[in-house]
Design a binder for these strands. Structure first.
Ligand SMILES: [Mn+2]
Ligand SMILES: [Mn+2]
Length: 291
DNA sequence: GGCCTGC
DNA sequence: GCAGGCCAACGCGGG
DNA sequence: CCCGCG
């Protein structure tokens, strides 16, 4: 016998009015994806973006565990800066559903886990469209995939859930962020030489004169990206969707993947990022070459 | 969404 | 009792 | 040191 530590509240509230998604529908989504989503969240501090009145209303970031959180929710206190932060860890379905009920709509997570906060489990390139449609972002993604392949590194794409794409590269968590940053920069500077017409690495928005910003600096300690399967605060309830490279070749675009259609997709295809959790490559050879 | 504070 | 506030700031790089 | 950026 278990004790109910929280209850569903406001089940009929429309969180995505334009997509006709109520809170109860959202909680059903989280329950449906929990099997594939939870392994990616495990032991990773979460930053939430909450929309208590739906995605058309105001939002706020939440890092610290809120007052009144059930005792069953695991937390992790990060002391890496002045003020300690007590983060939520989403390590079970009950916590995921509790967060959903709190109108936590976006789940952003670290590249490292609490085990080794300074040693990421994956690299990630964040491809942000500067203008235009998704096509140049697709092209840049294949360029990065092929470059990584040449270095012996398999990579896995996912939509950001908004306009962009992210490419994940699982690694052995034995390289400090100071080292992984060098690999990220090396690859970014390599691909911009191949296609300066498509790629910009400029951090100043006004200096970006190509259609795809390859944001390699997002990969850093205490920075985050949306978790696989995290919804986004968009009108249509799009989610960050793991893809196969084949789907991207066939023209997948971010707007294809929503809270309403992901459950069926997962039943059919499973977790297309499952290999991220079971495979990892060392960066020793590349780092040796760079030094 | 819900706790906490101050009146 | 109830209205209103609060809920994140940090890593990086360039000037 | 400050600032822009995410
Ligand atoms: Mn992005
Ligand atoms: Mn970015």
């Amino acid at each position: 016998m278990s004790i109910a530590l929280w209850q569903i509240t406001h089940p009929e509230k429309l969180l995505w009015p334009e997509a006709n998604i109520r809170k109860i529908d959202y909680l059903r989504y989280l329950a449906d994806v929990s099997d594939v989503m939870l392994p990616h969240l495990r032991d990773r501090p979460v930053t939430f973006i909450r929309y208590p009145h739906g995605v058309d209303g105001p939002s706020f970031y939440q890092k610290n565990v809120p007052a009144g959180t059930p005792l069953s929710v695991q937390t992790y206190t990060d002391h890496s800066h002045q003020k300690p932060i007590e983060y939520v860890l989403i390590n079970d379905a009950d916590t995921l559903l509790w967060a959903g009920n709190q109108a936590c709509i976006e789940f952003h997570i670290w590249f490292s886990t609490t085990r080794e906060p300074e040693y990421p489990t994956h690299l990630a390139f964040d491809l942000d469209p500067v203008w235009g449609d998704f096509e140049p972002t697709r092209e840049v993604a294949f360029l990065i995939r092929d470059t990584l392949h040449g270095l012996g590194l398999p990579s896995y794409p996912k939509t950001s859930g908004k306009e962009g794409l992210q490419i994940y590269i699982p690694i052995t968590p034995r390289h400090h962020y100071n080292e992984t940053r060098k690999v990220m920069q090396f690859i970014a500077e390599y691909v911009i030489k191949l296609r300066p017409d498509l790629i910009t690495l400029e951090r100043l928005v006004k200096d970006r004169h190509a259609p795809v910003y390859v944001d390699f600096l997002q990969h850093a300690r205490n920075k985050t990206l949306p978790a696989p399967y995290s919804p986004r605060g968009t009108k249509l309830g799009t989610v960050s969707a793991p893809l196969s490279w084949n789907e991207l070749e066939k023209g997948a675009v971010p707007s294809d993947y929503t809270i309403s259609n992901m459950s069926a997709r997962i039943k059919q295809k499973g977790d297309l990022h499952a290999d991220l959790l079971s495979h990892a490559n060392s960066l020793d050879d590349i780092l040796h070459f760079l030094h």
